[in-house]
């Protein structure tokens, strides 16, 4: 495990902590896209099927269980918690995420890592993760004001994949020496989707102003 990978995983974990903190302390999920959260549940469930078939390390198993558990918990809060669900910005969360699921599934059938059920699902999860943030970004763009925790959540989520890019470069030269088209290109797309957000996030931070995305 290299420093980029660890930093990426910790940033990913921290983003989830920030989101759960927002939901549990403010009893509000305003500004958070339930569609994006549903996509993450699907991403983790389809990617971590290898929990049953392959063992890597205690760290690996624990992190996978945490990602599955927390994504389901966030989904549950937003969908079913008596107080939290009333703060859901339903009208603004209008992205048709089923199209993303269908598109990524077809892509995974056409270009899978390998032709088996688990490998097609793994590839599907990589493609879907790359675009899962789109409903959230659209929701942010429609929101008048973005609270700090929501802004930080999205920033950390983007930083995680950017750090993974560095991890892949590092591993390519030190360890694997193989081109890994599917995760690399998906990861590049995923990180690029945040470029606009990063720009406005850093600007608002430097100017000490509230974060706002132009429509």
């Amino acid at each position: 495990m290299n420093v980029f990978r660890l930093a990426g995983d910790m940033t990913h974990l921290l983003s989830i902590v920030v989101l759960l903190l927002k939901i549990r302390t403010t009893k509000s999920c305003a500004g958070i896209s339930l569609k994006t959260q549903e996509l993450y549940v699907l991403v983790f469930l389809t990617r971590y099927l290898d929990l049953f078939t392959r063992y890597f390390s205690v760290y690996n198993v624990l992190m996978k269980l945490i990602f599955i558990g927390t994504s389901v918990a966030i989904f549950w809060y937003m969908r079913y918690h008596k107080v939290v669900k009333q703060t859901y910005s339903k009208d603004l969360d209008s992205f048709r995420h089923y199209h993303l699921i269908l598109g990524c599934f077809l892509m995974a059938l056409l270009i899978p890592f390998d032709f088996s059920v688990t490998e097609v699902l793994w590839t599907f999860s990589i493609y879907l993760e790359a675009v899962a943030i789109l409903p959230q970004l659209v929701l942010l763009q429609k929101s008048r004001n973005i609270d700090n925790l929501t802004g930080n959540y999205v920033f950390l989520l983007g930083a995680y994949r950017a750090l993974y890019l560095l991890n892949w470069i590092y591993r390519f030269f030190t360890e694997i020496h193989k081109i890994r088209w599917i995760p690399w290109i998906s990861g590049l797309v995923q990180t690029a989707l945040y470029a606009d957000f990063f720009y406005y996030y850093i600007q608002s931070w430097r100017k000490h102003e509230e974060l706002k995305l132009p429509a």
């Binding site: 990978r5 995983d9 990913h12 290898d50 392959r54 890597f56 390390s57 690996n60 992190m63 996978k64 990602f67 890592f113 390998d114 490998e119 793994w122 993974y164 991890n167 591993r171 360890e175 694997i176 020496h177 193989k178 890994r180 995760p183």
Partner: peptide
Amino acid sequence: ARSGDSKDEL
């Protein structure tokens, strides 16, 4: 098929 591919990533 998986050797050399870093499926140990999350």
